[in-house]
Design a protein around this nucleic acid. Structure first.
Length: 620
RNA sequence: CGGGGUGUAGCUCAGCCUGGUAGAGCACUACGUUCGGGACGUAGGAGUCGCAGGUUCAAAUCCUGUCACCCCGACCA
């Protein structure tokens, strides 16, 4: 069933504005009966149904929150009629929402162009051969949507475009003189997420700006990477978002150096560690802290074995023995890459970081905890009384655990623990690694300040890929000596659709969205009161509407025959930054009422030059 | 994929336990009154009760299967 848009019984006045290409749209919006009764201008085109009059604009706001929307941005996007769900993780962008999406796109495009990147457009459907060649046909897993055409040939719906761009680059680029170069596109991606959620925030099909740069060497790549870092900083700054660039893990895309851009919001899915004294910031997955500088204390206590019946957790051990968790050590057994079991030792009050751990030699990636059967087979102990003492096999010890003296650990014997354990005396000196999750209050690794934990929404990610794909796909150019040179690559993503949701998460109140100026679908909403009754109100509202359009300010005229409360509520839900109320009451005094979406009180402005007033505010 | 939950009008939901043939509010249509913060009245349109099978004189309701969606965990822009 088609939605029913707001209608206006009243005949709209003839407008002098030339709508150009919008005429066709305007004509299409007209119902058949109306078309027959409409009037035509001298060129025979329809001009009566100006598209930015709310009586004709297809908005459909909801008072109630659709039941499946969990986070505010999803709720507000549905309530304001920006998107509608088509299937799990698949969304339709309605006209009002698309306006904001296009603004995001345009800012990204302008800044990418300014950084010297070239826009191109790759197909969403990609041939399987390229993925087989890069090795990701096997590696990518079920998130990759694989499809067949009528000839039974295999394709994928692209979740990313490294293969296609590398293929193009190796065919088009021949000489080092053509480098460095950066290509980007703003294109739909499909990732068959296990659990799409939060509306457009984690959708399966989404819009992404993806850029790929090609270089002769690592130094040039680092320079190109820096250019992208700067471009991203400008992009998110222009959008009026509070964001933070953080160190990141390469994940499935691969590569060494990588940073994420996070929009800070409490509802964010990612935790990030931020120093309170300098610019250190990292995804919790890779965040580290300063290792203790002081030397380890020497042994004092003798090694003693104590009975700890039915004690399994660190908390229980502490309670029984009267020691702090920070003086205990916990030993976690994980699957090794050779079918064995590897022991990871961390301090009792710390937690294991899976991303850091799975990078260690001899550990299976992704990280898996060893099954109870395997634990029994390799140690003859039960989980709960495991320890490094007497463990046969590889042992990795976290820096903080390695710094302990006279500590407590499991004895690898059911219902017993050791206390007074010391590295070097009772055990060999450990293999020291960094495998724990940093905690709020830890010292920053830069040596200045302490770590705070914040939450963020990842809206951008930049990588130095190196020769990962170019080597696999043999993408080379000739160097100065005429020898083949494997190109160095960087890749740079921005979640275009996700930005819209992230901006709302960061900018809303109880009444609705509060768009940052750069993302607002319209800058100004005109709210005439009694538009249908008062000739004066109608005349002034129409004139203002023409004037704003004439100077190129996006304006929406709420000419609906609705009560004031409805118009106010909708203008706030939609989050239009500037609202001008045209009412007979203030017109008598030669005034209009102005209110910014962030303000709680209206102010009177002169009716003489509202366009100039708004223009000043837009520029300030 | 594992665990939990829900499918009844465009939206939010009641009815289901205890079978008796479909409801409310919002939205929509018409008319009237109203009109500076989501009005009111009257009338109206709209649902194969997710789908399939079964039990029964009778199924939204009970049973079986199936599909879809949502929530909690490992992935990502």
């Amino acid at each position: 069933m088609p939605p029913r848009w707001h209608r206006n019984r009243q005949t709209v006045r003839r407008s002098s504005i030339d709508w150009g290409a919008n005429k066709l749209l305007a004509a299409l919006l007209v119902t058949p009966q109306r078309r027959s009764s409409g009037r035509h201008d001298s060129r025979g085109a329809h001009v009566r149904y100006a598209p930015m009059r709310l009586s004709r604009y297809p908005i459909s706001t909801l008072k109630e929150i659709p039941g499946d929307a969990e986070v505010v941005s999803h709720q507000l996007m549905l309530r304001a009629g920006l998107i509608r769900r088509s299937a799990a993780g698949l969304y339709v962008w309605l006209p009002m929402g698309l306006r904001t999406l296009k603004k995001v796109e345009q800012i990204v495009r302008e800044e990418m162009n300014r950084a010297g990147a070239f826009e191109l457009c790759m197909p969403t459907i990609q041939p399987a051969e390229l993925w087989i060649e890069s090795g990701r046909w096997r590696k990518y897993g079920p998130e990759l949507l694989r499809i067949k055409d009528r000839h039974d040939r295999e394709f994928v719906y692209g979740p990313t475009h490294e293969e296609v761009i590398t293929d193009i680059a190796r065919r088009e680029l021949r000489s080092y003189k053509q480098l460095p170069v950066n290509f980007y596109q703003i294109q739909s991606k499909f990732r068959d997420e296990i659990r799409p959620r939060f509306g457009v925030m984690r959708a399966r099909e989404f819009l992404m700006k993806d850029a790929y740069s090609f270089h002769t060497d690592a130094a040039s790549l680092a320079e190109g990477y820096r250019l992208m870092f700067d471009a991203y900083t400008r992009i998110f700054t222009r959008m009026g978002l509070k964001f933070r660039a953080v160190q990141a893990d390469g994940g499935s895309i691969g590569g060494d150096t990588s940073q994420e851009f996070h929009v800070l919001a409490d509802s964010g899915e990612d935790a990030i560690a931020i120093s309170d004294a300098d610019d250190y910031a990292a995804n919790l997955e890779t965040a580290t802290s300063a290792a203790s500088a002081a030397p380890r204390h020497g042994p004092v206590e003798p090694l003693t074995k104590v009975a700890t019946p039915n004690v399994r957790t660190i908390a229980e051990v502490c309670a029984l023995l009267g020691v702090e968790a920070a003086r205990c050590v916990k030993t976690l057994l994980v699957d090794g890459s050779a079918g064995d079991v590897v022991a990871l030792v961390i301090r009792g009050d710390h937690e294991l970081n899976a991303v850091k751990s799975q990078k260690l030699d001899g550990i299976a990636s992704p990280l898996r905890m060893a099954s109870t059967e395997r634990i029994r087979a390799s140690t003859a102990a039960e989980p709960g009384s495991l320890g490094p003492l007497g463990f046969k096999g590889t042992i990795y010890v976290d820096r903080a655990a390695a710094h302990l003296a006279d500590f407590v650990c499991g004895a690898n014997d059911k219902d017993t623990h050791y206390r007074g354990v010391n590295w070097g005396r009772d055990l060999p000196e450990p293999r020291v690694v960094d495998i724990r999750i940093v905690q709020a209050g830890d010292p920053s690794p830069t040596g200045r300040g302490t770590i705070k934990i914040a939450r963020g929404i990842e809206v951008g990610h930049i990588f130095q890929l190196g020769q990962l794909y170019s080597a696999a796909m043999n993408a080379s150019v000739l160097d100065e000596e005429g020898k083949a040179l494997t190109m160095h690559m960087g890749c740079y993503g921005i979640g275009v659709t996700r930005i819209v949701a992230a901006a709302i998460e960061q900018n809303h109140d109880a009444n609705g969205i509060i768009w940052p100026q750069a993302l607002a679908p319209f800058q100004v909403v005109l709210v005439p009161l009694n538009y249908q009754k008062s000739a004066q109100v109608q005349e002034i509202a129409d004139a203002l509407y023409r004037d704003f359009n004439a100077v190129g300010i996006d304006v929406l005229l709420d000419d609906r025959d609705a009560r004031p409360g409805v118009k106010f509520a909708d203008s706030e839900l939609l989050g239009i930054p500037h609202r001008i109320v045209i009412g007979e009451r203030s017109l008598k005094a030669g005034k209009l009422e102005y209110r910014h979406r962030r303000e709680t009180e209206s102010s009177e402005i002169s009716a003489a030059d509202p366009v100039g007033y708004i223009r000043d505010r837009l520029n300030s």
